[in-house]
Design a binder for these strands. Structure first.
Length: 287
DNA sequence: CACGCCTCCTGTGCGC
DNA sequence: TGCGCACAGGAGGCGT
């Protein structure tokens, strides 16, 4: 059963699809059907749109990729993105409260220390102010997930495959750890700029497999896991690659390396994931 | 047009 | 020990 102190079991580091879906399931009983009586919002401008939730009833809580969508009773919907550190609490957090929802079922607090999260209220389906959401690729948890369409996206363009994965246009909900794990599983170098169709399909399958395993573990809880109260995610214990720079590859024993690829910290095995040619990576110190 | 770089934030963890 | 500072990182915006 859900502990009182933290609804989210805090999902600290990087909420990706499994973490956001876990949160959606935990949040639903407290939000779907509830009416929001009043809203307190942090002075920071980016959260101001949440004020528009006042008086609204939530009719459904959906998820697309890493976006939570709360369908409202007036034809609009609330878009919630957790950014890096967004959390929902059922008790008042000690700090970094950005939005407070007073509902007829109790109060929910949105805490976001780094303030990369976002809350917006738009006409249903109007994602003009959210281009990534507007161009979101197929979501692996939806029954109509089109694996070949996702793979096709990965074969076009010239950007490093790591960047294509993070862009959300191929597979919705991929973040840094899912990308690194999937690339490791398929033995694809993250800086690869061209994939053949078969490799692309295997990479999509690997993304889905990593997401499924992580969701089954209720996602990854990284930094705050000392505060866990029994409902925390466990996937951090199943990682083969992400966060293991400097440690031996579980497949070949070589030392996993870390560098910046497509602007993001990236870990891979230099033996299993062969360098496809000239790449523009910057070596980063290993721990 | 697609890509790459900068920005937003603040806790963390490093170096001195 | 304590201080200061660079850095991480999802997504948006913009320049090339």
């Amino acid at each position: 059963m859900l502990p009182e102190r933290s609804l989210t079991r805090t999902v600290p580091g990087m909420p990706e699809l499994p973490e956001v879906e876990t949160l959606r399931r935990q949040l639903s009983p407290h939000l779907v059907g509830a009416r929001i009586l009043s809203v307190d919002v942090d002075p920071l401008g980016r959260y101001q749109p949440a004020q528009a939730l006042t008086g609204r009833q939530v009719t459904a809580l959906e998820r697309r990729g890493k976006y939570l969508l709360a369908v409202l009773d007036d034809g609009r919907e609330a878009i919630v993105h957790l950014g890096m550190t967004g959390q929902w609490w059922r008790v008042e957090p000690p700090d970094h409260v950005r939005v407070v929802l007073h509902t007829d079922r109790g109060t929910l607090w949105f805490r976001d220390s780094r303030a990369f999260g976002r809350v917006d209220v738009v006409a249903a389906g109007d994602y003009r102010a959210h281009p990534t959401l507007a161009g979101l690729g197929p979501d692996p948890l939806r029954p109509d997930f089109d694996r070949d369409a996702a793979a096709q996206q990965l074969t076009v363009g010239h950007a490093p495959v790591k960047g294509k994965l993070l862009a959300q246009a191929a597979v919705a909900g991929v973040g840094n750890y899912i990308a690194d794990e999937a690339l490791w599983r398929t033995a694809v170098h993250p800086a690869t700029r061209h994939l053949d169709a078969d490799t692309a399909r295997r990479l999509v399958d690997a993304c889905v497999a990593v997401m499924s395993a992580s969701l089954a573990a209720q996602g990854m809880t990284e930094r705050d896991f000392q505060h866990l109260d029994g409902s925390g995610g466990e996937f951090q214990f199943s990682l083969d690659c992400y966060g293991r720079a400097g440690q031996p590859c579980r497949r070949c024993g070589d030392t996993l390396t870390k560098a910046v690829v497509a602007g993001r910290g990236t870990t891979w095995c230099p033996t299993c994931q062969q360098n496809p040619g000239p790449v523009d990576e910057v070596e980063v110190e290993q721990s």
